[in-house]
Amino acid sequence: MTDPDPNDPIAVALELERLRGSLEAGFARVDGSLALLVQRSDQTDKQLADHEQRLDALERSRWPLASIAALAAVAAVVVGAWELALR
């Protein structure tokens, strides 16, 4: 078998068609990879928003605990002082 003539228009057209097929396959693979990255980014954004929401809820519910602890400590000091005063 001999190599086809590089100046033959049919050989050039066939080679261009092969290149086009290779490019289409490559673009399809890149497009699929980008779609996967976008999907993962969306999932990460949703997860981050969920974590932010949960953290905000924890911060809101945390402040009464410190206040209650401070009030309990003050009450304990008052009761202790009252008991000492009664002796």
Score class of each variant (00 low, 15 high):
Arg54Met: 08
Asp3His: 04
Val38Pro: 02
Leu16Arg: 13
Asn7Leu: 11
Val30Trp: 01
Asp45Arg: 05
Glu52Met: 11
Thr44Met: 11
Gly21Gln: 08
Asp5Gln: 05
Leu48Phe: 05
Val77Arg: 07
Ala13Met: 04
Pro6Tyr: 01
Pro4Tyr: 02
Gln39Cys: 00
Ala66Tyr: 09
Ala28Glu: 13
Leu84Ile: 06
Ser61Tyr: 02
Arg40Leu: 15
Ala25Gly: 06
Ala81Gly: 14
Leu14Met: 08
Ser41Glu: 15
Pro64Thr: 07
Gly21Tyr: 01
Ser61Phe: 01
Val12Trp: 04
Arg60Glu: 14
Asp5Tyr: 08
Ala13Val: 01
Leu55Val: 09
Gln39Val: 04
Arg29Met: 03
Ala75Tyr: 00
Leu36Glu: 15
Met1Asp: 13
Glu59Arg: 13
Ser41Gly: 13
Ala35Asn: 06
Ala28Gly: 02
Arg40Glu: 15
Ala70Asp: 08
Leu34Thr: 05
Ala69Asn: 00
Asp3Phe: 10
Thr2Gln: 12
Asp5Met: 12
Ala13Trp: 04
Gly80Trp: 01
Leu86Gln: 14
Asp3Lys: 14
Ala28Asp: 07
Arg87Leu: 09
Asp31Val: 00
Pro6Lys: 01
Trp63Asp: 12
Asp31Ile: 00
Ala85His: 11
Ala28Pro: 01
Ala76Trp: 00
Arg18Met: 10
Gly26Met: 07
Arg62Ala: 15
Glu17Cys: 00
Pro6Val: 06
Leu86Tyr: 10
Leu86Trp: 13
Arg60Trp: 09
